[in-house]
């Protein structure tokens, strides 16, 4: 049973209430509660519920962005107080919008979902050169690389990126997403997974990772 404060934190995120998220996060610290649990059971839970509302057509991008603002406001306060060794990152993910494409709103939402779930996210930004993904994946030892594209032209960079990531690290998991993509196109490009929403991206990454670990 989550602590009542954590539940309120979760509600603050879900209701896009940035001020309440800040106030409640401070209260968590004042009361000597565990910061890491507050993040996972409070803030992240709220973001996850927001994702569910988006999937159900109740929330749209504006709502998600404001939920994310509340999430980050809380994270800024709680993160410095996570006890060393306590935070178990689910994994490292390198994320970016592929070369030729500057549409990053979808990528930013996926990033938020990953962060909310406790992943360590390395964000390369937008219009990212093909070779940068593999370089960054190698540099940080990420287990997942997530690629986003909104244009039919820029999505053509994806097979090249996948090839370069896989040739450097055949075990790396590559996820793709964005409006012009489909599961079939993703499979044709050699991606390990495809997701149609930000929330599903994280679920897919999690499932693929546990399948590859088992």
């Amino acid at each position: 049973m989550p602590h009542a404060l954590f539940k309120k934190l979760s509600e603050a995120v879900l209701k896009m209430d940035e001020e309440a998220a800040v106030e409640l996060s401070r209260k968590v610290l004042d009361e000597g509660l565990d910061a890491y649990s507050a993040i996972i059971e409070g803030l992240a839970e709220g973001m996850s519920q927001a994702g569910t509302l988006y999937d159900g057509g109740e929330y749209y991008v504006p709502e998600l962005l404001l939920c994310a603002d509340a999430l980050y406001a809380g994270l800024d306060i709680l993160r410095p107080h996570i006890k060393t060794g306590e935070a178990k990152f689910r994994g490292k993910v390198v994320i970016g919008v592929v070369e030729g494409d500057v549409h990053d709103i979808g990528k930013n939402l996926v990033k938020t979902m990953f962060e909310a779930e406790g992943w360590e996210v390395y964000d390369l930004g937008k219009d990212v050169k093909v070779e940068r993904f593999s370089q960054e994946q190698q540099r940080v030892g990420a287990c997942v690389v997530a690629l986003s594209a909104l244009m039919t032209t820029s999505m053509l960079a994806m097979p090249k990126i996948i090839e370069s990531v896989k040739s450097a690290d055949p075990g790396a998991i590559v996820l793709v997403g964005g409006a012009p993509l489909s599961p079939e196109i993703a499979a044709g490009y050699g991606a390990d997974g495809y997701a149609d929403t930000a929330k599903n991206a994280v679920v897919t990454a999690r499932n693929l990772l546990s399948a590859s670990n088992s």
Partner: peptide, 12 residues
């Protein structure tokens, strides 16, 4: 203006 193999249209 667009350039390179993957760009499709002008961007800010």
């Amino acid at each position: 203006l667009p350039h390179g193999p993957y760009q499709q249209a002008p961007a800010v």
